[in-house]
């Protein structure tokens, strides 16, 4: 299969750089988006969800809060401020995040956009089923 470059960058560091990505599925704001080699150049941004990375001989899953994706010249760049590997998180952490999000939702002057993002976040985290 044909491979392309993937870079996931957080403000603090380059989180993941690979050059043997086969397929990456990202939670774009308007729905999940699968990216293969020779995709047309695109810019979009993310909603809370799971990034599904298929590499040559392994597959990785990450949870993201938000971020921007850009694909050009067969390089997929994902810029995100909050990302973690699903293997590395435990139930306690997830519960704390969900609780924070629920608190946030209770506020009255919340914007529709933010409400959507927060609800999505809770939904995704709940569906992870981590123990």
């Amino acid at each position: 299969m044909e491979q392309f470059n993937l870079e996931i960058i957080s403000p603090e560091k380059s989180f993941l750089i690979k050059n043997d990505a086969l397929e990456v599925v990202v939670p774009a704001i308007e729905g999940y988006m699968g990216i293969l080699k020779d995709h047309t150049p695109i810019i979009s941004f993310l909603k809370p969800g799971i990034i599904d990375v298929k590499l040559n001989n392994e597959s990785l899953n990450f949870y993201v809060d938000d971020g921007v994706v850009e694909f050009k010249n067969n390089t997929l760049s994902i810029l995100t401020s909050n990302i973690f590997d699903i293997k590395d998180i435990n139930k306690n952490n997830v519960d704390i995040i969900i609780k924070d999000a629920e608190e946030e939702l209770k506020k009255e002057n919340i914007k529709d956009q933010d409400r959507f993002i927060l609800e999505k976040k809770i939904e995704v985290l709940n569906s992870l089923n981590i123990n």
């Binding site: 308007e30 810019i43 979009s44």
Partner: peptide, 16 residues
Amino acid sequence: ENYEFEPDEDEILANL
């Protein structure tokens, strides 16, 4: 590059 934007430029910019 001629990018495709999803959703449109304005909305991405407003978020970015």
